[in-house]
Design a protein around this nucleic acid. Sequence first.
DNA 1: GCATATTTGTCCGTATGTATA
DNA 2: CTATACATACGGACAAATATG
Lengths: 239, 239
Amino acid sequence: MTTSRPPSQSDALRALGNARVRVVQLSTASRVADAIREQVSEGLFRPGSKLPEEAIGEVLGVSRNTVREAFVELTGDRLLVREPNRGVFVAVPDSAAVVDIYRARRILEIGAVKGGGSTDLVAAVRGAVDEGMAARARGDVIAVGTANQHFHRSLVGLGGSTRLDRLMRQMLAEMRLVFHAGNLDQLFHQGYLDDNEKLCRLLESGDFDSAADALGPYLDRSEAEVLQAISPARQAAPN
Amino acid sequence: MTTSRPPSQSDALRALGNARVRVVQLSTASRVADAIREQVSEGLFRPGSKLPEEAIGEVLGVSRNTVREAFVELTGDRLLVREPNRGVFVAVPDSAAVVDIYRARRILEIGAVKGGGSTDLVAAVRGAVDEGMAARARGDVIAVGTANQHFHRSLVGLGGSTRLDRLMRQMLAEMRLVFHAGNLDQLFHQGYLDDNEKLCRLLESGDFDSAADALGPYLDRSEAEVLQAISPARQAAPN
DNA sequence: GCATATTTGTCCGTATGTATA
DNA sequence: CTATACATACGGACAAATATG
């Protein structure tokens, strides 16, 4: 407001630079955390395996101190667990964790759905459903599982709270750990695609209560399947 | 079961030592985080104030690396915010944060209440209500606020999920920040004590649906009061 | 069961870049 | 615009705990 000088290219470049500095800039520790999160989520770091801080730092070209900061962040997400004086390990969620997570999911997902949501939030649900359908159509089992997680994230998204969104993201990351630990790589996500479609239709028609009512049995079935899948063979994954 | 030798004192001491090592032992970083959390929660570190890592480390007798690890933990809790290359500051939750938190609280508290809970979980609610009544009786305004937070935590506790419990704890810590930032130190918690009593009665009578129905307007009123209290004077608290 | 090697937990010094007076 | 202060990140050090042979 103080000058009428038209914006020059150098102004624009400087603005871009400032934006980069302010937006893109994550701390090294956070970028390390993201890298580890990725490997854990993809199952390359198996549940129960140890993450030696020196080795991690060497591979990523960062110091041990930085790795330790990343570990603190990931421990807060429950992806890693710290055993005092022994190191950090990829978490191995047990059935108690699964029960705990599903109790939380029932409250979060049902509560968010019952409250309804703006049309763009419902559109996000539709996007996740279509993503799953497309993945099934081309036989991409992994992508079906990913899309299914996006679906449930979008349900919580209806609640319009970033804090709930974050918790849901964390819990779904934990669920991936459960799948990896049980060697049951998102096998049975397929069976929920049609339910997802029905739920989405109800949301699009504005019948949030019916959608919420349908979610209870949906999650009960899902929990039961997961528990049944991990209960028999609980093989440890040393190193 | 392998030996009939009676437990000696040295056995007991060793067991105590092991218990200490395994249970009590928090990392120095976690203890530093707890110490900072305490100060922030009590309002001694004001919202917006800067926490220089060197000074903190000096006061607590730990190195800067340890302080940085604690900062990572507290940033994850949203109690501190990191401004790249400028340092960490005590968070100053704005009205958007308040709205976000109340959206989450409505879903969490109402969902947990609607699901009911075991008698001991309901007993915890009763304990929090009585705690508030006792605090009011002896005119301890601060304790009334604390008891009120315990009450809402115990409501979420009905959900039986440690993950929801943790999120609720974090959000209530954020709310304390809101109170401290607005210089409205839990002044108006008193006005909710009687509602808490009524809600508790409904829970004890097993009428979870009525309790859940009453909770919506309760939280609406609470959110409105907080927003109204912080909207006029949003004074910054530099250094 | 013991001696050794490895790794964690913690601290310190320092170089570099960024922000601010 | 320079100077100062500080955050960021690195590397090295060492004691203590743990794992290993």
